[in-house]
């Protein structure tokens, strides 16, 4: 059975334990940053930053909200990046967990195509052209541990487990907070293995909180490769 995250943003305090735990576990270096008039830093995901708590201040119905969105790869059921790549030695989906894994061979891909294909704007390129993003802490999960960002979370905003367990939890939480937040929703829940719950219009949190139709406007080269891809590759969804 595949794994899923459930990210309840209504419980996130932006302590950013997840952001650091991710760097710690993956031994990722820090980036040089400056204060740009916001607490959010780094400014964006990068080859060295797989997990980023996005922070936005907004007024909803006359009330100030400080919205936190712990952004990461959604580990799509049908990952457009994987389809675009068409090279299982570079991007593959682990059959048991469903984790979408990038290897060093991503440097042989056309990075911009892969990035553009992602409806959530996740993958990022290194100088040598290799791509990186969240790997679901595949090594931890394989050894029976929760991903670093989930284990570290104090409030229950980050959750991880079997798909069925996570969808149940997501629906329970949805029901529970409906009174408090009438516009609460689960984002693209059927298509991804990282289910976000947001209290307000997802656009208020982040431009790419939900899948953008534009993102599927993949390049011609990518479309071509997609057509040539062996059909067996669809199998991952069915496992």
């Amino acid at each position: 059975m595949s794994k899923s995250f459930f990210i309840d943003t209504t419980l996130c305090t932006a302590c950013r334990g997840c952001q650091v735990a991710c760097k710690q576990w993956h031994s990722l270096p820090a980036e040089q940053t400056i204060n740009r008039g916001s607490y959010q830093n780094p400014e964006d995901l990068s080859f060295d930053t797989y997990k980023l708590v996005r922070m936005r201040e907004t007024v909803v119905d006359g009330q100030l909200r400080w919205l936190f969105f712990p952004d990461q790869c959604r580990h799509c059921y049908e990952p457009p990046c994987l389809d675009t790549a068409g090279d299982p030695s570079a991007i593959f989906k682990d059959g048991s967990t469903g984790a979408v894994i990038y290897t060093a061979n991503t440097k042989n891909l056309i990075a911009d195509e892969i990035i553009e294909s992602c409806p959530y704007n996740i993958p990022r390129k290194a100088q040598d052209g290799a791509l990186a993003k969240c790997d679901m802490c595949y090594d931890r999960v394989f050894n029976g541990l929760a991903p670093a960002c989930v284990k570290v979370c104090p409030t229950g905003a980050m959750n991880f487990g079997d798909r069925a367990e996570m969808t149940t939890l997501a629906n329970q939480r949805l029901e529970k907070v409906k009174n408090k937040y009438p516009k609460v929703s689960l984002l693209d829940a059927d298509d991804v293995q990282v289910i976000y719950m947001v209290a307000f219009d997802p656009d208020l949190y982040h431009e790419f909180a939900v899948a953008s139709n534009n993102a599927f406007d993949i390049t011609r080269h990518a479309a071509l490769r997609r057509m040539l891809r062996p059909i067996t590759h669809f199998a991952s969804r069915l496992l």
Partner: peptide, 15 residues
């Protein structure tokens, strides 16, 4: 799978 899966960063199955 029969090809090199040495990932970009440590994806080793051994913790």
């Amino acid at each position: 799978l029969g090809f090199d899966l040495v990932p970009v960063k440590a994806h080793a199955q051994m913790l």
